[in-house]
Amino acid sequence: MAVIELTQLSKWYGEVIGLNNVTAEIEHGITGLLGPNGAGKSTLMGLATGQLRPSKGGIRVFGESPWDNPSVISRIGYCPEGDPFWQKLTGFQFVVFLARMSGLQGASARRAAIDAIERTGMSANAGRAIRGYSKGMRQRIKIAQALVHSPELLILDEPFTGADPIARHELTNLFRELAAQGVHILVSSHVLHEVEAMTREMLMIDHGRIVAQGDVQAVRKSLLDRPHVIRVRVDQSRKLASQLVGWELVSGVSIPQPDTVLFETKSPEAAYERLNSTILSDGMNVQEIAAADESLEAVFGYLTHRESK
């Protein structure tokens, strides 16, 4: 049985279509949910966690409808997108409360919280109020609350947003480790490379429709000829740009803003790898590494166009 089954699933908000007649099965292990902003990823996750109701068609998680169904949703760990927090709580209080909301009792809730916080590398900051957290810390503590009740299925909405390269690496390893322990993971991203580092199974959506599904290598092959634009926000932008110019795999470099470098490559995977080691060895202070949206939109535009053909 598939972990999540979508049957002619549609969701619309007034005249805006969130998902359009989607039929798919999400199997065991890690599945990447990939799509540009506004593609319908969060809508699909909202439906899978019982927060949204299908306008048409159906969704089943572990064989049952998740809407107002605690027997299903208590088996899910959900990490939402954005910044939904009770800001005055400390990270520890936040995770303990949600452990208790999952039915864990006093001491075992605290133990589970300590364990989840440790796994996400937040032990040193767990006693601080969430309002003082950086974006990366917020992501980690949201992941900790999703793990705290040892769910069978993790639904992670853009978990890498705001995370630095080291955090991305650590979180990727954590998700792989959890998957090896038998946890099913549905993780959304608008960056192909991020998801690719974790899994080969992918569901790509755009404008509420599935544009590609299955093995990432097969999808990637069709994208080989398309250049990817990567954006790096860094304190030493000129130094980084001058290094990038010398790389064979980089076909163009620009500095649109004093703290931002954009570069174009047809081998994003290798570029990300080399970029990370360059940044670490040169001690640069990086605020963000991301696929520039325009490029990603172009990728999905390309896929959508190919689909329609």
Partner: peptide
Amino acid sequence: ESRTIGYLITRRLRR
């Protein structure tokens, strides 16, 4: 409004 409702309705309790 603060979107924290998601935490409360995706746990052990019915709405």
